[in-house]
Each structure stands twice: as C-alpha cells, then as structure tokens.
Simulated scan of single mutants.
Amino acid sequence: MFRRKNSSHNHHENDSLPSESKINDLKVAMGPLYERSLKYCDDACLRRYLEARNWNTEKAKKMLEESLKWRIDYKPEGIRWEEVAIEGETGKAYRANFHDRDGRSVLILRPAMQNSASLENNIRHLVYLIENAILNLPEGQEQMSWLIDFTGWSLSTSVPIKSAKDTVNILQNHYPERLAMAFLYNPPRIFEAFWKIVKYFLDAKTFQKVKFVYPKNKDSVELMQSFFDQDNLPTEFGGKAKLKYDHDEFSKQMVLDDLKALSLWGLDQKVEKISQHAVTKHSGAEVAPESIALPAS
C-alpha cells in the first residue's frame, strides 16, 4: 500500500506541469462562469473531467457543459433530506459511518431492501447520497467506494433496467472520477442475467472499477481487504463489524449535513434559522429544516 501511494504521488508530480496547462486550457475554453457553476468548477473538478476524457480539452469541455446544464436543471446540491428520507427508511442505500483505508466515503447499497417503485424518487435519493458522500470527503480525497450487499436479492426485487441505466449515466457523466471502486458482494448466479445487460451501459473506465467479490474466492476477498479495515467492514461483507441501519440516527446526521451543504453552496443566505427541535426531535421522513427558501438557479 505504501509503495502504491508513493508511486501515485510521483506520477502526479511528474505530470503536474502538463496537467496544469490542460486545466488552464479548459478554464479558457469554458469562458466566464458564475455563482454555483463557478464554485463547482474548481481545479480539482476540471482535472476530473479531463481525466475522464483522457485529457482531451474539447471532449472534457463538452462533458462539463452537459454536467453544468444538468446541475442547473436538476439542482442536486439543493436536495434536502426531508425530500428523500422516505426512500431511505429500509436502509437500501446510505452513507456508512466509516471510511475505507484511503479515507474515502463509503456508500452501502442493499438492493433487496427496495421500498419504492418510483424511478424518479430512487434516482433523487441516490443523487442526494452521492452529494452527501462528496460533502464528507476528507481534504485531499475526491473519490468514494461502494459496497453492494446482495443478501436476499432476486429478479423480483431488482431495480428496473431503466433505473440501472439512468444511475450509471448520472454517475459516469456527471460525477466523473468520483468512484474509486464498487464491490458487488456475493451476488447470486441469477444476477448474471441482469449484469449482462447493465454492463453494456458502462464505459471502459467504470467497468474496470466494478469488482465481484465471492467469499470463497481468495483474490477477490484480498482485493476488498486491501480497501477496507476488517474491524470496520460489516459482517455482510466478510468483516467483523455489525451492520445496523438506524433511520432516526441517520436522519439526524443528514439534517446536520444539510446545514453544511447549504453553507458550502451559499444557499444559507436565504435560509431561515433551523430550530433545534428539527434536529433533536423528529420521526422518519419528517426530519427537516423548518423553512428553507432556495434561491432560483
């Protein structure tokens, strides 16, 4: 692990000058940006889009412009927990209370716990969690890891193909280079039929980041252990920790995180004071800032 990190560090040092030049080229190509678009397009962001398009400035520009348009229309940074909390009641997807070995945020997905037939609400809930995972990254870290638990999964509980396709498109096109690795833990054989369709939606880079892990496959288990401390990793993924999702406790944390997001994006200028009651006393989907007025995009 130590050698791997040093090698990466030296690689970035050697490439720093050409990459900085490419970032400056992309800044010029994008032209003037304002408000949240300007805040979104920092140097780290431009680097991610350039990396996603193999440092081709024109392709990165097109990709970034499409993302900015999507963000203006969809307003992912403006989604509040109260709007999506009902989707998370079963614990089908949430941010873990631990990081991986490199300090990345971890999203845990349990598709068998699906509780909604609404494609739009499912996507909105996931986008909220992606934004929240990014919000909780330590300084210097830009990626997240996904852990997908297939306990109880069947074709009857699987998400529709369209939902899977939309999820992949959003992750690839609007959150480039945000995914470090997605571990699919012990999927049943019947999942192979579903996977044969979904994998065609993945670009080459994303495809390489999806790893199947089987408890009896030594290589896949060792790869997963290289990313996670066994004491933090839940038993459902071969670790030692007990996986317990408490919706009320998670909701409390999301309310606090919403305050951080509001401040980060400058949305708190028109936000009325959130009462302490909203943070300390709530139930399920009713967790919310009492009155939030978001400025028009």
Rank of each mutant, 00 (worst) to 15 (best):
K22Y: 11
G238Y: 08
N173E: 10
E286I: 01
Q143C: 05
D42Q: 09
L179P: 02
E20D: 15
L259N: 13
I274W: 13
Q225V: 09
M254S: 10
Q230V: 10
N169K: 10
F237D: 04
S220M: 14
L119V: 07
R71Y: 02
Q114P: 04
L126R: 13
D248S: 12
R104A: 07
D25P: 05
S37Y: 00
L147A: 02
R124F: 05
E131W: 01
L68T: 00
N97I: 04
V213T: 14
S7G: 06
F98W: 03
E139P: 06
I170Q: 05
L135T: 05
N132A: 13
M1Q: 05
N186Q: 11
R80W: 04
A241H: 03
R95P: 00
S105L: 12
V255F: 06
A93Q: 07
I148K: 02
D257A: 11
Q230L: 11
F207T: 15
A288W: 00
E192T: 11
E142C: 07
E249K: 06
E66W: 02
E272Q: 13
A29G: 02
E286N: 10
S67V: 00
K281N: 15
V84A: 05
D246F: 08
S145W: 02
L267P: 02
E58K: 13
Q141A: 07
F250D: 12
K62C: 09
K260V: 07
A288V: 00
H277G: 10
P111S: 05
I148Y: 07
P111N: 10
K240R: 11
T90Y: 05
L223D: 04
F228M: 05
K209M: 15
T90L: 10
E35P: 01
Q225F: 09
N14L: 11
F150K: 02
K209W: 15
L126C: 14
V221I: 15
L33A: 01
N122V: 01
I134F: 08
A44Y: 07
L109Q: 03
S67M: 01
F183S: 09
E249Y: 06
E120H: 12
N232Y: 06
I79S: 01
T151Q: 14
H12L: 15
L26F: 09
K244Y: 09
K216S: 15
D248C: 12
G140T: 02
P18R: 05
A278E: 12
L155Y: 03
E131Q: 02
H277Y: 15
R4S: 12
H174M: 01
V84P: 01
H9Q: 09
S275N: 06
R53P: 03
D166K: 12
R47K: 12
C45I: 05
R71F: 00
M1R: 06
Q276A: 04
A241G: 02
I123C: 11
G31R: 01
R189Y: 09
T206R: 15
G238F: 00
C41T: 04
M63E: 03
Y175F: 08
D73T: 05
L33N: 00
T151Y: 06
K273V: 08
W55M: 13
